[in-house]
Design a protein around this nucleic acid. Structure first.
Lengths: 132, 132
DNA sequence: CGGCATCCCTTATGATACTG
DNA sequence: CAGTATCATAAGGGATGCCG
């Protein structure tokens, strides 16, 4: 009873999301990067560290308006986890912790710059030559 | 209810956080791009259109596993709103609608490729030279 | 100073059923 | 085939208080 007449959907083994991933698993790769830099305060933090090699939590709080300490810590942790930011605890009293970009973090900046340039090139939705 | 088809949340322009915007308002610009390509199915759609110049809704449904029709339409609308994708309704019966990348959409691809390359370059969190 | 925990709200995303 | 409408749930974000 494993014959041809399939009146039903043959268990078409769905590829493990392999499809639609684009060349070289582009989608997966880009998604990974997006996850790393997506977050209400990820960019402000990264760009701040790009300008200032070493930053303390209190400095971020001062330089980034409206950010809460919770979100600051949380996003710093995520960035650290993703290897973009390095955390350095001096183990002093009172506490002293400094943050900085990792090699990867610095390597990411050019990509962000590319995104910025693209944004500049398309100030608004180019309603003119929108035809495919 | 004779309004435009706004199936999605119109980008509620966040407050003009002038500060911490980085050089040239980098943060704002990059954030804008991120907002355009962030979404569970934005990348699969874009990369699919990059490979296939013209796509119909049903094709997306076939090529992108697990995507629901609602999300497909919603994300296509958003991409269209942001000027990355062009929608072409042939006004036929039965319905025939085709989607394709706009000039801006095609211009974005190199940026996405750059992100992919970066991802490849840092396969994992580079725990070696993480020091600032 | 830095950081963690809790409660709560706004969105993003999903499941499902329906229309032209 | 393409798209709409509703309801339900998950994830992101924010306010606040306590700790070493």
């Amino acid at each position: 009873m494993n014959e041809a007449i399939t009146h039903f959907k043959v268990p078409v083994e769905r590829e493990p999301r392999e499809a639609c991933l684009g060349p070289d698993g582009s989608v997966a790769h880009v998604t990974r990067i997006l996850r790393m830099i997506t977050g209400r305060w990820k960019l402000p933090i990264l760009f701040r560290l790009f300008a200032e090699p070493s930053m303390r939590a209190s400095q971020f709080m001062r330089d980034i308006p409206d950010i809460s300490q919770k979100m600051l810590t949380q996003h710093l942790r995520e960035l650290e986890y993703d290897g973009l930011v390095a955390r350095r605890d001096f183990g002093e009293q009172p506490p002293r912790v400094e943050y900085g970009l990792t090699v990867a973090g610095r390597g990411l900046m050019p990509v962000l710059m590319a995104m910025r340039e693209f944004s500049k090139h398309y100030p608004k939705c180019p309603t003119d030559d929108d035809e495919r």
